[in-house]
Design a protein around this nucleic acid. Structure first.
Length: 411
DNA sequence: GTTTGGCATTGATAA
DNA sequence: CATATCAATGCCAAAT
């Protein structure tokens, strides 16, 4: 019954919404991308020369295998390099960051990797995918791939366009309105996953923080470290933020320690304090695992199920993954349910109220619109309302939004 | 000898 | 030994 409802009221009505979004597409500033490509190529050549200089010879920098042999067999920059499952040297970013002080070549390699990633995956790739007739890129939104109920995006994936680095942000600037006098409008849920954790666990302290409109990471830090809100330092807020993320994923002291670079014992203490602050969250986590052991599945607020066949495995590693999934899937999946409901309701209004603006992208907790200028105010009010009121929880859902001449400005 | 396909590694997003 | 994805490159073996 629940699954019929999920299908009939969410997934099936979403089909035409996604079809329209794919059909609408996104306009790209191809000229700007092409000139940025040249800039990147220039920088790459400089860095490349610098790397060969340090190494003393040329090799394929893009090959992790060769990179490992160069760094650890020939240059011997450290004695006990970490290896991957298959026995090759690990040369991923986390490993290289630890070697930063050992040799000047490390920074150059990281720089090279960053530039090459942008050039190959985005700056050169996106213009090739512009449809000749529409002059836009048309992604595919996949509805039945992700185990949690999220959408995924492919050909191209428009859900992983860079935003974290200055260089990456250049790419967002190339996502522009389809009309010269239009704008991009972006609206995203604020902390939707933590709000769902608060709602589902019914933890009074976390619910209160949201009801009172507090910054959740600062509020968490204040409680964990036993301070007033105003006394929380940047570092404490940052640790509390990592703890909050860890909670959503099914925390371990090892994982948290790894993530923020502290000792396992310190991470354990942080987690202990966290559960003292939010006692019902631990109860909720235990309840989810117990339910999964009994039923072999867990569910979202709309009855979407994730089956967990490994939940009773005798292998502790395998079982641990399933247990973390029992905690994470209802949270991540409920957030997916909610934005899907909002999308359906927004689409109805776009049609019924004859908007010319179009919904063009979904990025898990964000919706992006290609907007006609005279519709900005009305659309903003409508989208915000529909997102905030897609479902009724024990705490408010809030939406942040922005607009501008490109996706970067809007977001 | 060359092409194709799959796995491994790496890194981009949700933040 | 933290959740969910997609994609590019390298590398190697199977297929032709």
């Amino acid at each position: 019954k629940n699954l019929s409802k999920l299908s009939g009221e969410i997934e099936m009505p979403l089909v035409p919404v996604l079809a329209e979004m794919e059909y609408a597409g996104v306009k790209l500033d191809v000229e700007n991308l092409k000139s940025y490509a040249n800039e990147l190529r220039g920088k790459i050549i400089v860095v490349e020369k610098q790397i060969y200089q340090y190494a003393g010879f040329e090799f394929n920098i893009a090959s992790p295998k060769q990179m490992g042999e160069v760094l650890f067999d020939r240059m011997k920059i450290i004695s006990n390099p970490k290896k991957t499952k298959t026995g090759q040297y690990a040369t991923g970013e986390p490993e290289l960051l630890k070697l930063k002080d050992k040799h000047g070549i490390i920074d150059e390699i990281l720089e090279y990797r960053g530039l090459q990633k942008l050039l190959n995956t985005y700056v050169e790739a996106l213009p090739k995918l512009v449809n000749q007739k529409t002059e836009k890129v048309h992604t595919s939104f996949n509805q039945a791939i992700a185990a949690t109920g999220r959408l995924s995006s492919s050909n191209p994936n428009l859900q992983n366009i860079p935003i974290r680095t200055i260089e990456g942000r250049e790419i967002r600037k190339a996502f522009i309105p389809s009309n010269n006098d239009g704008v991009i409008f972006s609206a995203d849920y604020s902390q939707i996953e933590l709000r769902l954790m608060a709602h589902m666990s019914k933890d009074e302290n976390m619910l209160n923080a949201f009801v009172n409109g507090e910054d959740i990471h600062t509020a968490t830090a204040a409680k964990i470290f036993n301070l007033e809100l105003g006394e929380v330092s940047r570092d404490m807020r940052s640790r509390a933020k990592s703890a909050n993320f860890g909670i959503i994923y099914g925390i371990s002291s090892f994982g948290l320690a790894q993530n923020i670079g502290i000792k396992r014992s310190e991470a354990k203490e942080l987690i202990d304090n966290y559960f003292k602050t939010y006692p019902k969250i631990r109860e909720y986590m235990n309840k989810q695992i117990a339910f999964a052991r009994e039923n072999m599945w867990v569910e979202t607020i709309n009855g979407r199920r994730r089956y967990l066949p490994d939940i009773n495995s005798r292998n502790a590693i395998v079982r641990g993954v399933a247990e973390r999934n029992a905690i994470n899937a209802p949270i991540q999946g409920s957030a997916a349910d909610i934005i899907k409901i909002a999308m359906i309701n927004i689409y109805k209004k776009l049609l019924n109220e004859n908007y010319k603006s179009k919904m063009i992208l979904q990025v898990h907790d964000e919706l992006v619109f290609d907007v006609q200028k005279d519709e900005i105010e009305q659309l903003k009010a409508m989208v915000t309302y529909e997102m905030e009121n897609a479902v009724n929880l024990s705490i408010p859902l809030t939406v942040d939004s922005g607009m501008g001449g490109d996706w970067l400005e809007a977001h």
